[in-house]
Each structure stands twice: as C-alpha cells, then as structure tokens.
Design a protein around this nucleic acid. Structure first.
Lengths: 230, 230
DNA sequence: TAGATTGTTAATCGATTAACAATC
DNA sequence: TAGATTGTTAATCGATTAACAATC
C-alpha cells in the first residue's frame, strides 16, 4: 500500500500517491461500515452526545475499533487523541464521503404490516431517501393514508411504469407475500428499475444488470440466532 | 491448513488431523453463510427444485461460488459433479451441521406493524424457533390475537421475569419505539435473557455477557442503498 | 502531569478469486 | 462422448488484531 491511498480497496487512484479523498470510489466493505457508523452517530447525536470514541462505535456496530480508526483515517484526521471524535463533525464528514446529499426516490409494494412499518419509518427522510409511492393490490386498502407525514396514500397496483418515470423512482421495495414477489419484480424491471429490495422469501429471477437484495426482519433474526445460540 | 480440518476458522480440533465434522465449533462467518444457504434451499424446495448448483446458490446469496463449494466440502462430499447438489439432502446436511434441531423460544416486545410482521412470519416455525409471548404496553391491544397460528395473544407489559422463566425464553426481540427500547432491554436483562434483538434505532446499554444485535428493515435498506447508489 | 484515545504499522487470519483435474 | 459442475489448490486481497508512539 502506497503513501496516502485510503484503505478502501484502492482500485482507482493508483500510482498518484496522493488521492483526493471523497472522490475515490469506495469499496463495498468500507461503504457498508461507514453507513453503520453514520447510523450510530445519528442516534448518538439525538441522545445529546458531543463526542464518541472508536471503542464506543465498535461496541455498537460490532466492527473492530482499529478498523474504525483506520477506515476514518483514510479520509482525514477527524479525531482528537485522548478525546475521540466530534459527533457532529464526523457525521458531516461521513455524509460527504458517502455523498448522501442526493435525493433518491423509493417505491414500496405492499401495504401490509411490514410495508406499513417501512413506510412509517422516519429513517429514510433523515438520510435523504423518500418513499414516493405505495402500491397494494387489495382494493380495501386503496386510498388509505400510509407513512408518517400524511401525504402518502395507497395506490392500486397499476401504472407502475408511469409512476416510476414521473416520480423518478430508482429503488423498488417488495413487502408483498412471497407468492406475489416475482410478478412485481418483473413489472419493476420492465419499468426500468434496476435496484430491488426483496423483503419476501422469494428467490427472484431478474435479468443481468438488475440488483436484488433479499432480506427480511424474520430472516435476519434467524441468521443471527445461529450465531448466538450454539 | 492440515489434512481434513474443515475450513471453519479451525481453532479447535487442532493437531488431530481428522476432525469429526459437525462436532467442531463453527466460525461466525461459516455459520452465517450456512444459514443463508439453508434459507435459499428451503425456498428452492418449495419451488420444487431437486438440485441446485453452487453457482445458483451464489447468485441468490451473493456469496462466491467457490466459497460455497469450499464451505460445504469441509463437512463432506455432498455434490455430484456435473449435476450440483441435491436440495433435500443438502438441507438435511446443513441442518445437521447447524444443529437446528433445538427448540428455542422467543419473546417479542411491541405489537405494532413491525411486531405483527415478525409474529406473523412462518419462518421461525420452519426453522425450529417459536414466538411464545408478545408484550405490548398499549391497553387497546391487550388480548388481541397475533401471529399466524391463532394461539398467541398480546400480553400486558408486566411479569416479564415470570414469563421468561416459565416459557424458557432465550431471546428477546424489541419491536418497540426507540424511546422505549432501553427500558425493555433492562427488564429483559434483569429477567436473565442474554440475547436481545433490537429492531429500534436505540443504542442499547447492556452489561457484559449480554449480546445485542441491532437491525431494522429500514436501516438495512438504508445500508444496502449506499452500495448500489453511487 | 497523567490518562485516554487517535493514527499507524506489522502480523495474522479469513474471504475471494482463478484455475483446473476429477468425474458425473 | 461432451458438457457441466464439483472438490481442491494456490495466489491475492481485505479484515482483524495487537501494539505503541503521538498527542490531546
């Protein structure tokens, strides 16, 4: 590893020696960890914390504290020895590194319990994402208000392509029954969406170029239980 | 790496050379991946699939196919060259390796949207876990049926310790508002629970020896978005 | 000053990847 | 047979960990 190459997979920048931090492309691992730090910092700020140490971040994220210091030091010297990191300042730095400024629009499918839990979360708004449409094929739910800000209402499951185009949807979130997931995924792909979040258990078939991320609260819990119960 | 030591972190067994597979303790990484294979296999079986290749497993889990073959070959030769793995047989093998036979009881806190989504999931029953109690402090919800089998009803938020003892609860799942999470966590710890799943955004303070796993559907989505949107 | 914590190096470990013989 | 896929090795890469000087 050369001079100041950030510890970030470093496949770009290469021979320059000095790399403009924040312009280099992040590796998946670094991006994932930074977003977890961001989540803890956001919560720590709400709790009124002014500084936080790498050890505390490690306790909350289960990422090694040396790893955390190394991740951060690749982009600058954000901490104060003997004190820790300023919560507000570090939040800003990580937001800058992750380029969280952009506004990304999400379409949600399924207004059942999970869909309502997701639509009602204020996390997205806090991080620059926005749920712009909620679809459900149950006529009984049509028009029902959903989400926390009172502006969203459940739409019928029609006209996906028009909504995707008009609202600039870049991510489709599937909170539908497993049996319905493949159909919705197909419609999303046809509408031009390239990122799908699948909270069902379905094994989705999508063409190359479309990314599917599958996870659900119950499956997550299940995976983690294998860790802890042995 | 010596003779037949499974590729599994291998901190036990050591000099023996031949290690009884299935009795060795799994590393965290291997256990996590095996449980993901299990999830895909379970779904593949429901879809009527008889065999599956390491490449297909890789597509669905985003784990490298060589890694999958290596994970599995540490415990035996389960595949057929040119064909792939038999879904049923591999399911049994992984279940045996993960010792999924045990019955583990879960207490759920919060009967809101997320709580109902979790309680209503049939994943737990499929994998040998059981939600034995659901608590909520909202009097309007008391006695309400919850879950898919009709036997569970929402309990008032009292007598945690008694329920934990009588029902043999080993895991507490928090699907409560962020502001309430710390109080419930404290009560769970006092009742002797050592594994807590936190679906709120709270940064929980727990004594040493207690494991907290924090994640929520919305936060998961957020983390993953940083991958795909750049 | 004394204690705490960062920033950084070095060593080790586990995961990823490419490659390919074995074999179904 | 020919094609496909496993089981396995070797090389590389990224994560983890220990250690510690720098310094707040």
């Amino acid at each position: 590893m050369t001079l100041k190459e950030p510890y970030a997979g470093g496949r770009s920048g290469g021979a320059l020696g000095v790399v403009d931090p924040g312009l280099d492309r992040l590796s998946l691992g670094v991006a994932a960890r930074l977003s977890r730090y961001l989540q803890v910092l956001t919560q720590a700020r709400k709790m009124g914390r002014e500084t936080i140490s790498s050890q505390e971040l490690a306790d909350y994220t289960h990422v090694n504290s040396t790893q955390i210091r190394r991740d951060l030091s690749g982009f600058g010297k954000f901490g104060k020895r003997g004190v820790g990191y300023n919560v507000d300042a570090l939040l800003s730095e990580i937001r800058r590194i992750l380029r969280t400024s952009g506004q990304h629009n999400i379409a949600l499918f399924g207004a059942g319990h999970l869909g309502q839990a997701i639509a009602g979360s204020d996390i997205f708004a806090e991080h620059g994402f926005r749920v712009v449409a909620v679809f459900d094929s149950d006529p009984a739910k049509l028009g029902e208000p959903i989400g926390s800000d009172g502006t969203l209402h459940v739409r019928p499951y029609t006209g996906i392509a028009e909504v995707v185009e008009q609202e600039g949807v870049v991510v489709g979130v599937l909170a539908v029954p497993t049996a319905a997931a493949q159909e919705v995924a197909g419609d999303l792909v046809a509408a031009g969406v390239r990122i799908i979040f699948n909270y069902s258990e379905a094994l989705l078939q999508v063409p190359p170029g479309v990314t599917v991320h599958t996870s659900s609260p119950a499956v997550d819990l299940l995976h983690a239980l294998y860790f802890y119960l042995t």
